[in-house]
Computed example of a mutant assay.
Amino acid sequence: MSKVRVLVIDDANFIRDLVKKALRDHLPGVQIEEAINGRKAQQLLNRQPVELILCDWEMPEMSGLELLTWCRGQDSLKTTPFIMVTSRGDKENVVQAIQAGVSDFIGKPFSNEQLITKVKKALHRSGVLQNLEPRTPPKMLSSGSFANDSLSALTAGKTESAAPPSAAPTQARESVAPPIPKKTAAGYGQGQLRLADSSTACVIKALSLKEALLVVKRTESLPQVLASAVLDLEQGDNAEVARLNGYLHAVAAFEPKPDSEWLQLTLRFVDSDAQKLDYLSRMIARGSPQKHFIPGA
Results as ranks from 00 to 15, higher is better:
T266E: 05
E261T: 14
R218E: 13
S281N: 14
S288Q: 11
R24S: 09
G107Y: 08
M283F: 11
L195H: 03
G101D: 01
P137A: 13
L226T: 07
A274Y: 02
V85S: 07
S228G: 02
G73Y: 03
E174I: 14
L231Y: 09
E234N: 09
E113P: 01
I9E: 05
A167S: 12
L277H: 10
G64N: 04
G127V: 07
K21D: 01
L67C: 05
R218F: 02
V94D: 04
E220R: 13
L44G: 08
S281Y: 07
D10T: 02
N37K: 06
Y279R: 03
V270R: 00
A274T: 00
L52E: 10
R135V: 07
R218P: 02
R125H: 15
V251H: 11
P49K: 03
A185N: 07
Q192P: 01
G73N: 12
E174S: 13
L68S: 10
G187L: 13
F14W: 13
C71M: 06
K158L: 06
L263S: 08
G107T: 13
P138Y: 10
R282P: 03
G101P: 11
I15Y: 05
D271E: 10
L68F: 06
S175Y: 13
S63L: 04
V50H: 01
P137C: 12
L54W: 00
I36A: 01
R286D: 13
L115M: 06
Q31W: 00
E34G: 04
S152G: 09
S2Y: 04
L18S: 02
T200D: 02
D11Y: 05
G29L: 03
A168P: 03
K3I: 04
L7F: 06
A162G: 08
A147E: 09
T79I: 08
R286F: 11
R125T: 15
R286I: 12
N131F: 08
L222F: 10
R286M: 10
L233M: 12
L226S: 05
V85P: 00
D278C: 03
Q43G: 04
E234A: 07
T184I: 09
T86Q: 01
V30S: 05
R135W: 04
Q235I: 08
Q43L: 14
K217L: 14
Q290A: 13
Q190S: 14
M1A: 15
P138M: 15
D273G: 04
E92S: 15
P169F: 03
V128G: 12
C202G: 08
A41M: 12
I116S: 07
L226R: 13
V241Q: 12
K21E: 00
D197K: 05
P223M: 15
Q235T: 15
